[in-house]
Amino acid sequence: MWLFWQFRRLCTKVNTMHDMVLEVVNRLLLPFIQLFGMYILFHGHLSPGGGFSGGAVIGASLILYSLTFRFARVKHRLDHDTSVFFEAAGALIYVAIGFVGLFFGYNFLTNRGVFPLGVPGQLWSSGMILIITLALGAKVSGTILSLFQELLEGGSDEHGNP
């Protein structure tokens, strides 16, 4: 509980802080961090990585964004509803992919025979694995971001005041 209140105090401080160095450096860094996260996601079936790690990188970049550019100010662009939407959409896509297999007369979450597998080693291959990786990435980044926003907004009203 003590840790939680320390975190809240830190976030309130960050909410009112304005640092030009942080903003300029993050303006330069954030696109590359997110590009790297996208790379991990899209190459999940080719190289080490996948939905969980790529989603964590993207979620961390979004947390960095809302910490640097004052959460209250960028809230209209990155509010709690958005992160919850991405989280729920990721889970929903995962389950929907599973039901596609049932629809074609195979087991739940069947890949071979339902989705085109492509040539192993190419980017657009491996059927449902790529789709599920992207869905998991959306879900994990939404989870991380919404946990952060939940802690930030926990005891505050809708205008972001503590």
Binding site: G44, H45, L46, S47, P48, G50, G51, Y94, V95, G98, F108, L109, N111, R112, L117, G118, V119, P120, G121, S125, S126, G127, M128, I129, I132, T133, L136
Partner: peptide, 20 residues
């Protein structure tokens, strides 16, 4: 599975239910 990353093939195809 069409994936050359065996770990991705295991967690997202053979054991996709576990990952769900």
């Amino acid at each position: 599975t069409g994936a050359i990353n065996t770990i991705a093939a295991i967690i997202l195809d053979y054991r996709a239910y576990d990952t769900l």
